[in-house]
Design a protein around this nucleic acid. Structure first.
Lengths: 226, 226
DNA sequence: GAGTTAATTGTCAGAATTGACAGGTTGTGC
DNA sequence: GCACAACCTGTCAATTCTGACAATTAACTC
């Protein structure tokens, strides 16, 4: 499996092909960021039938998808089943009628609040216990590889802030700010003018593309800068 | 191993005893919080000789301890060795002369920015490759149990904020705040008076024991409230 | 019905932040 | 020597936040 490419097309082709080799016609991956907190960005990548993709989006199935719920709770793999979808019958039935009958999903949590959910599915041939026992290690490994690869490709464009670097003074000041100190207090603590503190804070806000200290501090924490 | 007690004394006694059973005279555990960001709280628990504890603290060895450095980078276990301590000779020599010669350490990352580092050490009998192969699974398991137990006991008193719960309105408002919205903007978004937004923000700040929005939003993110 | 929790709104003064105008210093690498 | 990055400082107006004084309404539990 050659998943080391940084090229988007090649990566996706490789993933779809690998999914096929693992016995699944469909490959789907959802990448979710922690930000913005009030409406986290989500990117969906898959080779599902167009009609199903459309249905899924129109009905906002993402919000009630039990495999997504499961993935936010734990990184343990889960196999699609009648009971799993008991609280979302319409989703289950629509999926079935679009040829999505048997599936396997696992989520991953990364740094910087990034989480991913990989799903493999097919129309025929239920997933047996024996198949699971045999393939689980491969599937888990595949999940890791896919997560890594897709994150590398999609994260920079989904989260441009990720590339920001702060100078040492900026880091120092945003850290104190995150602890709740005012500009004046920080100026006393590190022995510079209050005006200078605000100057640095301003630069941090520009770099992180936000309009106030609060958002800057939160971003810095989420990005792991401080 | 009975590590299910919530009683501090019993837990420590149990841990020390278990360490002994695993072949180590000394048990040490460091618990570090993410907050305050500028001076993260640290709690050290161990049964090292008093003199060594004193030395360690006086010389601020925590800041240059290579096992600590390693633990912040990765959760892979590490065995004490001459080369590991090559950049901190005095620490290594002082440890040796206090009977701390052979050791094993592993860190763990938990939720809410909590991380722990468990160390097992002894004076005699080097840790052989064979011993490692045989004991690693046990040691890793022990680390998990110790981390869980110690976190349960020490976290509430180290991090009283952890018990805070916000009402749904408060959560909603602090989330928008963390995204950088002003009180007025939030009042428009959710359709209430600006005064009311500030009232709720005030309550959040009181609950989290901070004095401004910025610190409140950062706390909320770190605590996983939003 | 009494007590509790959550949510809402009012006013106002003092403090802090934000954005926009610039300009000067220090150290590093080519 | 010169470009460049990082750091430091100045003023000022408009906006925003913080803390302190309360008070009312709705929903739920006992």
């Amino acid at each position: 499996m050659l998943l080391t490419t940084k090229n988007k097309e090649d990566l996706l082709t490789g993933l779809f092909k690998s999914a096929k080799l693992l016995g699944f016609d469909y490959f789907a991956y959802g990448l979710q960021l922690a930000v913005p907190l009030t409406a986290p960005k989500v990117e969906l990548i898959n080779n599902y039938p167009d009609q199903w993709q459309k249905l899924y989006q129109e009905n906002n199935y993402l919000l009630i998808d039990p495999t997504v719920m499961h993935g936010t709770q734990t990184t343990r793999p889960v196999v699609w089943s009648e009971s799993l979808f008991s609280d979302s019958r319409s989703l289950w039935e629509d999926a079935n009628s679009n040829g999505l009958k048997y599936g396997w999903a696992q989520s991953t949590y990364g740094k910087k609040g990034v989480s991913g959910l990989l799903t493999l599915a097919r129309s025929d041939d239920p997933i047996s216990e024996a198949e699971l026992i045999k393939k689980t290690p491969l599937l888990v490994w595949f999940t890791q590889l896919a997560h890594q690869g897709l994150q590398d490709v999609f994260l920079p464009e989904m989260m441009p802030q990720i590339k920001t670097t702060l100078t040492s003074r900026e880091t120092e000041i945003i850290r104190w700010t995150a602890d709740g100190k005012t500009s004046y207090e920080i100026s006393v603590i590190i022995g510079i003018g209050e005006r200078t503190v605000n100057f640095h804070l301003n630069n941090v806000m520009k770099k992180l593309n936000v309009t106030n200290k609060t958002a800057a501090a939160v971003q810095a924490v989420i990005l792991g800068i401080i």
